[in-house]
Design a protein around this nucleic acid. Structure first.
Lengths: 106, 106
DNA sequence: ATGACATTTGGTCGTTTTACCATACGTGCA
DNA sequence: TGCACGTATGGTAAAACGACCAAATGTCAT
């Protein structure tokens, strides 16, 4: 693996990592419906505002979302919407695992 | 968000997390070509065997890969191959970010 | 300007992750 | 049976992460 491939793998892993947290994944899924301000996202998250803000910052750093300040509020939206098209496959992994465990009881 | 939704989000985040490490993502990509034994994967990774084994164990726990022991060797393969179909979109995120940074020099 | 509001930033601390080393386990061959 | 080989497991230390609190920033209305 050369330097370039290594850098690409690291970059990809980083994008995945940004989504690999329940709160951040949930936020991204919410944004799939359209842009939302931080306050709207925060309504349904039981965590400090500063925590929420930091999670959004991680997604932004990763390039998954972008923000725009309008008045007092900051709006976030998905930057590359396909980023969530993947979830059915992720769910397939989970289903496969659950089925396997279910078999143990038969 | 009810308990069930919460559990699903956590499960999904967990699958993503298993892939959100350069070494593990690289391994998964290698396995897309077909099953490989630990020794084959190890050839191209600069890390301790125990480290490699633990990474594979994380992928297995997450349900992304499965293993099969044949003789002295253990073979791993992708369990749900679609899990890598996503990478083009992940790369799109990276490209978008890079283009943005490039613009800064114009 | 002042205060209230929405969000971000800095600091601290407990938890999790990751890498390495040493060691254990299971398998096939001498 | 004993040894070498391929892989997994346990322990430990360093680094990264995530949550909270406190305080800063920027914006709007007064």
């Amino acid at each position: 693996m050369n330097e370039k491939e290594k850098a690409l793998i690291e970059a990809k892993a980083n994008v995945l990592k940004s989504l690999a947290h329940p709160t951040r994944l949930w936020m991204a899924e919410q944004l799939a419906e359209g842009e939302k301000c931080v306050c709207e996202l925060a309504e349904n998250i039981d965590a400090d505002f500063s925590t929420i803000s930091k999670h959004l910052s991680v997604l932004k750093q990763a390039g998954v979302v972008e923000d725009e300040k309008r008045g007092k509020m900051v709006y976030y939206k998905l930057k590359v919407p396909c980023i969530l098209k993947y979830m059915p496959c992720v769910e397939a992994v989970i289903r496969a695992k659950m089925e396997e465990q279910t078999v143990l009881f038969k």
